[in-house]
Design a protein around this nucleic acid. Structure first.
Lengths: 107, 107
DNA sequence: TCATAAATTGTAAATAATCTACAATTGCAA
DNA sequence: TTGCAATTGTAGATTATTTACAATTTATGA
């Protein structure tokens, strides 16, 4: 398989990540963060979800999940929750920026 | 931001795709394939899910979802379900192969 | 050490989402 | 119009998630 064909197989993935939505149970499975803790972080406005109406199940996108993973890393390193959230904010801006550039290239 | 930092932001994504699991409702939202149809395809063994015990909620990984999207495309082009499944099988092998290569590079 | 706040965890009762199974409907080709 | 492929509908049971209130654990400064 040529280099080009490989790329074709995976060039779709940014589009995929863009459309991705995941429930809280699966996020927990992916990140190893308990659902209880995810809800707690959301209550504290450390993270956000896509959920529109209250009472409905929470939905998260790629960016949300990425943020959780970064916060988890920093907490493991010894940061407090608030400090981790602050530090991650900047990094998230870079990630969003990178994704935007890639989407522009592909779009 | 340098090219290298961009890559660092996203080099994680193959690892992410590897861990990704999604419920049937979200798969439906991502692919625009009704849940009823997803279950039908699974009944017919056109696609598979990760679900271990019956009665529990279905879980799908990246490969499963990718396959559904490819089948959907072919059906829209006029293929029958069985013909689409057959054609997609080969393509899925290439995709799995590509992902394996990437994982080896990263691991 | 003790008080206080931060962070996490537990759980009951209600609701949302999904499950299976049986059946009906639609579309198309012989 | 018959037969098969493909899809869709839905009832009743089950699984997963929701909110809300409370308890527990952990870190920190006086």
């Amino acid at each position: 398989m040529s280099k080009n064909e490989e790329n074709k197989d995976l060039s779709f993935d940014f589009d995929f990540l863009d459309k991705l939505v995941v429930g809280i149970g699966e996020v927990s499975q992916i990140t190893s963060i308990p659902t209880r803790q995810i809800r707690y972080w959301e209550d504290k406005n450390i993270i956000t979800s896509l959920t529109e109406e209250e009472g409905k199940n929470r939905r998260y996108n790629y960016e949300n999940i990425k943020k959780m993973l970064l916060i988890k890393e920093l907490i493991d390193e010894g940061y407090t929750l608030d400090a981790a959230a602050e530090k991650v904010k900047k990094r998230m801006e870079m990630i969003a920026d990178t994704l935007n550039k890639l989407q522009n290239k592909l779009g």
